[in-house]
Amino acid sequence: MSSTDTTAPPATSPPPLQRVGRLRQMADFYATVSRTAVQEQFQYRAANYMYMIGMVVEPVIYLVVWSVVAEASGGSVGGYTPGGFAAYYIVWMLVRNMNIVFTPYGWEFRIREGQLSGMLVRPIHPLHYDLAYFAGWKVIAVLLWIPIAVVLALLFPPELSVNLAQVATFFVAIWGAYVIRTLLLFVLGMVTLWTTRVAALFELYFTAELLLSGRLVPLDLMPDWVLLWVDWLPFRSTFGFPIEALVSNLSGPELVRGLVAQLVWIAVGWALAMVVWKRAIRRYSAVGN
């Protein structure tokens, strides 16, 4: 099996020119798929907006509750004032949107409807398709987020002071978060090829993610014994870190450390995805005419 997976022909190794050609092809593929996603999703801008408004409620609830707590305990809690929480949860919305990737529940549909068969005959790994498609969708999500962020900022005045390093880190980190989450949920979705009873497993994963990523509450507020776990799990890299990069005054080394953690998780996620995919796809069989 492994010998057929190498792309190099047995006789001659590919000249360097061909490698550049492949990279360019890949770039072209990503550009085309993400452009298609933009066009496709722009048709459903009203539906997309409804979806986002539904999404506003969650951070507003957290924001209100923690602001009340901050005021009750003398103006700030864990270093966050109500204005600090406002900044956290407004940026939260953008990061939440960057977190939307192909759902692991979707694999059941892809298998049942035979979509996976179609993906297998394409000369490109399905992971690339998902990465490119949802990346394009993000363009719409960010555009729709801006007016919501403005309204939220008027209702809940945020306190925010940023420097260039923070902004730069933020823009890299949100894409890092996106890639990590895509990879991990791809691996999780692959479980569907072994068993169709996946709901409980997915539920556990999403609950752990909710509590340990910084989505529910800034991780600084978590007790120390929880933070011990957080350092060994990928969730902070996918949610809390990008927000903190912008809103809590992290030092230069802290920013770099966060980005390195993201790189590590991308490497781990990629390796896992490749290994699990190879094993999972052997279990796949399709029936057709």
Partner: peptide, 29 residues
Amino acid sequence: FLQLFQSLVALATAIAVVALVFLYTPTLG
């Protein structure tokens, strides 16, 4: 059983959140 599991996970999460809030304040509103 799936529903029971989901209900208990949701309840545990809710308790965790309430516990977290009262880590910082004796009463909430």
